[in-house]
Nucleic acid binder design. Structure first.
Lengths: 246, 246
DNA sequence: ATGATGCCTTGACTTGGATCAAATGAAAGC
DNA sequence: GCTTTCATTTGATCCAAGTCAAGGCATCAT
């Protein structure tokens, strides 16, 4: 069972307090949200909703990782979104989801029933403004990812994914983003393949190649050390800065 | 010079009145927008803004087609968005654009300077609600496109693009969406390749193949006739309904 | 008409990543 | 310890799409 079950009751100590959809809220607005929120926990691998289902709630990711995936009839699947802590799940104004949502790791969501949340959007510009901003950022990330999927080589794809995970991880642990990153991959090789539009064999081969070339070091299969972050960025094919939005 | 230069002054007769960001506005709100809007016209091929530029306005596409593209240092390019009439261009709250924007065909934009528009978002929930809704739809389309880029074959990609253009075209001309569609491709082979993550040679070959197989008929190089729309959809690889959002 | 210019098509050949098939390793239950 | 299970690695082969290279076919200016 999941050991990381989330115990918070109070938004004031919430780890995503300043990054989530509620980031702009005034104390009285927080109090309102506090009253209508509830938590849900999922174990790694558990489905959250299936494509075509009604989704009766929206949520913020508090801890863990969730994936949005689309599947074709013949079984080909493509991950179309990776939700990390503070990311928002749901589509106010749309009742059906058009992709499967799955917990990739153990996961805690801070949920709101859809109707009350939609009412709140209408009455509370701080929430709707923030949600618009987050959605525009998501859209930019999705477009960034289209470049990765459409034009990058397998090696560049892997390097891009590693650098994104490293960066998101660093920004969470508020560590120094200097050279020398160390992080845990929250994804299996297969999930990485689904994200990158590759097969898991190709993912494995390219990771081995990056290891052989000294770009990364592995402890076990998930623990990654990047001795020279610039060297990793050079492998992504991006122009120098690497292209993390903002 | 561009013959289709747009002459409207009055929002009341605007062709995108009921689909654009202003769709939900009340008469007095329309009057306000009417006062601060202005039109810009571009010829096919003209750049609108370059990646990294400041963009001092936001806009709705009134007529024509605009493309968002990202380019890697070595010249590989990927189209990351295709803006058709009523689509919104711009990122309120972000000053720099992160992709090139180009007029693909002759184009008319209905523009608002950024600052007044941002003020309006704060004071006018009908606009910001509508913009949120449109942005969420864009995000869903982007995710749909990630499946196309990551997992579909060249033939499926072409069929997907043709069916999307056919559908958007049909919904504009409010024609019957029955079998038998006829439309004009607004894109060169190269632009299609950039959209689909292919080379222009592959695009050409696949279009020839679809023609050979009787799925499409061509008059010249741009005028497309689809005798059996179901047959085209079957080539997209999608499950029967084709996946147009809502 | 005659080039010149810009799309577009077609052909011949190459290749990066997919596919098919084992083998290895690591954790979990008995 | 031993077996099962699941994730990962590695190898051998194949093929869809890329690359390189002509040629065709409009449109436009001279």
């Amino acid at each position: 069972m999941n050991e990381t079950t989330f115990r918070l009751k109070d938004c004031g100590t919430c780890p995503i307090r300043f990054n989530a959809v509620c980031a702009r809220c005034e104390p009285d607005e927080m109090a309102h949200l506090d009253r209508i929120k509830y938590y849900r926990n999922y174990e790694a691998g558990q489905p959250i909703v299936w494509s075509g289902d009604q989704m009766d709630f929206v949520a913020s990711v508090v801890t863990g990782v969730a994936a949005l995936t689309q599947t074709m009839e013949d079984g080909r699947t493509q991950m179309v979104g990776l939700l990390l802590p503070s990311d928002f799940l749901g589509h106010p104004g749309r009742h059906k989801v058009v992709y499967d949502v799955t917990a990739v790791s153990d996961l805690t969501l801070c949920c709101f029933r859809r109707k009350p949340f939609e009412d709140l959007l209408l009455s509370n510009p701080n929430v709707s403004q923030r949600l618009l901003e987050m959605t525009l950022n998501e859209l930019d990330s999705a477009r960034e990812w289209m470049l990765v999927l459409g034009r990058k080589t397998a090696r560049e794809k892997i390097a891009s994914l590693l650098s994104i995970i490293a960066r998101r991880d660093a920004s969470l642990h508020s560590g120094r983003t200097t050279d020398g990153a160390r992080f845990e991959l929250p994804l299996t090789r297969e999930a990485m393949a689904d994200y990158l539009g590759l097969t898991l064999e190709t993912v494995s081969r390219q990771i081995s190649a990056l290891k052989r070339d000294g770009i990364i070091e592995l402890q076990g299969t998930r623990q990654v050390h990047v001795p020279d972050f610039g060297a990793l960025l050079a492998e992504t094919g991006d122009d120098s800065d690497g292209g993390m939005p903002e």
